[in-house]
Design a protein around this nucleic acid. Structure first.
Lengths: 343, 343
DNA sequence: CCAGTTATCCAAAGCGATTTGGGGATAATT
DNA sequence: AATTATCCCCAAATCGCTTTGGATAACTGG
């Protein structure tokens, strides 16, 4: 059933039917009712592609999801981010277009979306410190919102980020306050902006107490459970092993925990652990008292808010860029305790 | 740059330019070269919406991702499934349309996709034993492939499933062979077809050894880390506590492991654990020797294959339904050992 | 009673592609 | 030389919607 058939059936013009359905004022209320009824009865909904072509709006938002070539890995936080964003989209009548690509093909993916006109805007995921996609998208004239930040946050683009630096500075301070001085860090890939900022926060806290960061106990890699495990095994076998570990992802922290247990230590007693926690729906960090002491921020909420910002950017009239920096909660859990060096 | 502009620029008709780009034979090779060059140079690509409208093919595939109202949870296996499927789609020039909805709104989501003509086919996720979506999609005339199976697999629809029943029967047999007789099960929601089949496999194995399944040690719930943890704590505090636990998801198994450690037992020594493992990219179950003994099957491979089947269904000429049942590997890891009842 | 509104509706022109049904050269065949 | 094929190309219709620019009839106030 298409518009022509429906309007023939009703003995009305396509114009009137279209206007009735889209809520224009110049149509009699009685007619509108008839139209709406008939539409419902015949299960009619305007063809999306035709509508898009006529209005010039794709009514869909693109997400480019990179798969790392290195480990063929897709970041699991996307699941929750997308759950948040998706809800906002549906409510506003937008579709979500996903493009899953090898991480080095990301630029081309954005370029294609723009060329083919299949989206009205995009969310930029996993920003790097210097990210060519910033210029690319600006150049393409495609509205976008960055989940995170590019190194240079003074540029006039919209972003939503958590205060990674402050979060990790506080986390480090907490450990220092507990008496730990040899604090390891198992970070994400540090060409990612969030990881770089976390590292800076960590170093700031150390330097404030005149502790020189030791590269031997700092790792930067993909945030898998396995990396958490192996890096921790490595740390614990060192001569001057750390008494505390700062972790960039809850998933890695699970591996960290496994390694600590396996080595015969107890988390929170022999070794303290603080992790960042994206509050993933399938991996909640405890109920009232968290399993891991953590800096927590819901990535799902971020998805929802990013989507809102993007839609208002698209529908609003050239509004100024929105830039939001969210502070994170520091949740005290069972994984931290006073420094008590082994042996 | 659109087709009209490009053809004006070239001094050719739109017809010829379109045919040149789409590889039709009735265009001079010299002309075609010129057209391709100009297209490249002006960064032209046909507008997706216009092309779709003209051809009547949306060139996109829909996925409906349910978020459970209960725990606001999105199943993390989607990330990997979609990574697999996405690759197939891009290679074939298809887009992926994601619709994230509350789990009780799923039907409406499929219905909308069909009405609005925004997709050429869909993947049906998380099938139930009796699933109304089967009839719905058939009725809507929308090509689809089920990831999993509906209870009645004799119906003529395409599906790709792993042999859940056999997998869990083997897993249970393994535990029985190790001398365990009191084997608990922490399963997914049993209105889901996969969970039901796993339960049946488990019961079959028990009955073959004349053991009556005990409902006190069988749980059916969402597969979160937390559920794994709490159910295990519950099990271990029982009078006649089980010596082995069968788990339906690697994520829950992590919680199971945490509970076992926390209770002062050792996994694989005091308590044996076998889990199903979807081989998630961010949660690999060990390298050579798995952390957990597991029935393993890559959900990413499943995504890729489901996409292939769906595309061939859409492009092929009314081919018969494809039904594939994959056997899973049983990987021996560190989490199983001979029965050695505590105390 | 008449010009000026107001309330409703419609025909037709887009949107940007594909595709149908020729048409004019040029080459090949009688 | 006339006819037929073959090659290459084009004008125009089409997909299903929105939107522009009226048109008609009823209603208003002076």
């Amino acid at each position: 059933m298409n518009l022509k058939e429906l309007s023939n059936h009703l003995g009305l013009s396509q114009t009137t039917v279209s206007r009735a359905l889209n809520g224009f004022p110049e149509v009699n209320e009685a007619t509108r009712r008839k139209v709406l009824e008939a539409a419902q009865q015949h299960n009619y909904a305007p063809n999306r592609r035709a509508k898009s072509l006529a209005t010039g709006r794709a009514m869909s938002i693109g997400h480019v999801i990179p798969v790392t070539v290195k480990h063929e890995m897709v970041n699991p936080v996307f699941a929750d981010f997308i759950a948040g964003a998706g809800e906002t989209y549906s409510n506003a009548g937008y579709d979500m277009l996903l493009s899953v690509v090898r991480d080095h093909d990301e630029e081309q993916a954005y370029r294609n979306m723009a060329r083919k006109g299949s989206v009205d805007g995009v969310i930029l995921h996993s920003p790097r410190e210097k990210d060519p996609r910033l210029n690319l998208l600006t150049e393409l004239g495609l509205p976008f919102v960055v989940h995170g930040r590019i190194g240079d946050e003074s540029a006039p683009y919209s972003w939503l980020d958590i205060n990674n630096g402050h979060a990790f500075e506080r986390a480090t301070d907490l450990l220092l306050d507990l008496g730990h001085t040899r604090i390891a860090m198992i970070n994400g890939l540090e060409y990612m902006d969030f990881a770089r900022r976390r590292r800076l926060g960590y170093e700031t806290a150390l330097k404030n107490r005149a502790i020189v960061p030791d590269p031997i106990i700092c790792f930067s890699d993909e945030m898998t459970e396995q990396n958490g495990f192996y890096r921790t095994m490595e740390l614990l076998s060192q001569e001057n092993a750390p008494t505390a570990i700062l972790v960039s992802s809850y998933i890695s922290a699970i591996g960290v925990g496994r390694a600590i247990e396996k080595s015969g230590y107890r988390i929170g007693q022999d070794i303290s652990v603080v992790t960042h926690d994206d509050d993933l729906s399938f991996l909640r960090n405890g109920d009232d008292i968290p399993t891991f002491t953590a800096t927590r921020s819901s990535v799902r909420d971020a998805g929802q808010r990013c989507a809102e910002i993007l839609l208002s950017q698209i529908e609003g009239t050239s509004s100024p860029p929105v830039q939001e920096l969210w502070e994170v909660k520091l949740m005290l859990g069972h994984s931290t305790g006073p420094c008590r060096p082994p042996q």
